[in-house]
Design a protein around this nucleic acid. Sequence first.
DNA 1: CCCCTTTTTGTGAAAATTTAACGGTTTTTC
DNA 2: GAAAAACCGTTAAATTTTCACAAAAAGGGG
Lengths: 252, 252
Amino acid sequence: MKDRMFHLKEFIDKNGRVTLKELEGAFPGVSSMTLRRDLQRLEEDNAIFRVPGGAVSVGAIVRSNDGAVSERINYNAEEKLEIADKAVKLVEPMSCIFIDGGSTTTYFARALPDDNFYVLTNAVIIAETVLRKHKPTVSLLGGDLNKSNFITVGRSCLDFIDGINIQTAVMTATGYIKDTGSFTCGGQAEAEVKRKVIKKADNVIMLLDSSKVNKKTPYTFASILDVDCMVVDKNFSKELKTTLEQNGVKVY
Amino acid sequence: MKDRMFHLKEFIDKNGRVTLKELEGAFPGVSSMTLRRDLQRLEEDNAIFRVPGGAVSVGAIVRSNDGAVSERINYNAEEKLEIADKAVKLVEPMSCIFIDGGSTTTYFARALPDDNFYVLTNAVIIAETVLRKHKPTVSLLGGDLNKSNFITVGRSCLDFIDGINIQTAVMTATGYIKDTGSFTCGGQAEAEVKRKVIKKADNVIMLLDSSKVNKKTPYTFASILDVDCMVVDKNFSKELKTTLEQNGVKVY
DNA sequence: CCCCTTTTTGTGAAAATTTAACGGTTTTTC
DNA sequence: GAAAAACCGTTAAATTTTCACAAAAAGGGG
């Protein structure tokens, strides 16, 4: 029984969220009632949470909600989903894409279809999200781990980027300054990584939801001249869109 | 409506976990169906989780995960805890330690006191565990991410090791063969990483619970001559212990 | 201001999930 | 080795959840 419970928790942790039917399929020969009882016990141990129709892994929840992102990940959820859905149509299967760390890009990672991509990222949460799918290959950039957002940065991370090829870079920013057309973020080391990735990439896609416009954070890592196309939400102002397009940026 | 949703979320956040009946009491004049729909929308926004009969706040879930391990699901949990407790006494603050990926080493990572260590690891789970403490600095080895155990391996991972210094390496194995005194693991790439780490480290500590003895897995990555000391549990056989000590391995 | 479209809300029935109870089996414990 | 406890599967009952549809409310031009 201990054995089954172990595999059960493992299975839930790996999938993040499962239905009872999936469990029945994954554990043939075990009655659904027993699975229920197991879930009950795991819930008592705070290992999982039961939800209508199945269960979710506590680990997955905690991770997807970690550090400073706690309130931010669900802010503008609808807009971010819209952006992610549009953006996944711009990447082609079998291509090698870098996914930047951030809440909007996490939605992108979730929306990514289960195809043979080569995914590179410096965000632990995104690596996990993509790895849950079956086909993509995932590489995680090494380096110093940032406490607040679980992103790797630093010297070794930059060296790592030297050794890889990037076809498409899917980036995001914490702020966009209209006057100068610059994208900004909160950390020095973070900005360095972003800069290097953009330099290396053949094609740069910037995901930006409307709440970021004219929000100022310390470090500028790119300007509109560096990006090839941008994906925005429906609340994005028309005039800003035309400004961008005049500078050769495709806006979706 | 937005107003009601706001109060609803506030109410759930305050109470942690609520039933639908409680909500009906707290929001008189609102039908239960509407409350259901509201919960649905809040869940879509990742603001709450619906559970059978009600909902919980994300905050409550995160708080429930106070580092307590599910006792029920772990093989040899007691033994592994014993090993971890003994092993953390062997590392000194301010030192630079590598922690190998594995279940016993995950216990070690949990037991590690909140001091100024420099921690290097190729296991995502261990990186997260240590990062939750406040003082340690954590670096994650980059590379291809292994689907089954969330460990990075591969060329770039090996290159990464070239660039770092390791004072103490805390390793583990999936099997130990008594006759030849060799430690084994299940993957080729994994073995390569382990070998390189051991070569780089000044001091190698091997954690091995008694269930691993004479369990055979394909790849040998080290022999007893490579390790400086070993931490085992109380079920470990006496004679094996003396054999090890005769070969210059300190056994705890 | 009115009409039309869209969104939200409430009701009740249908579907499903969850719980509860019971007897047989296995495992623990003394 | 026997009594006690824990575990498992089946069935039936209770509850929860979903679904569909119509009423009500809220926007949105003209």
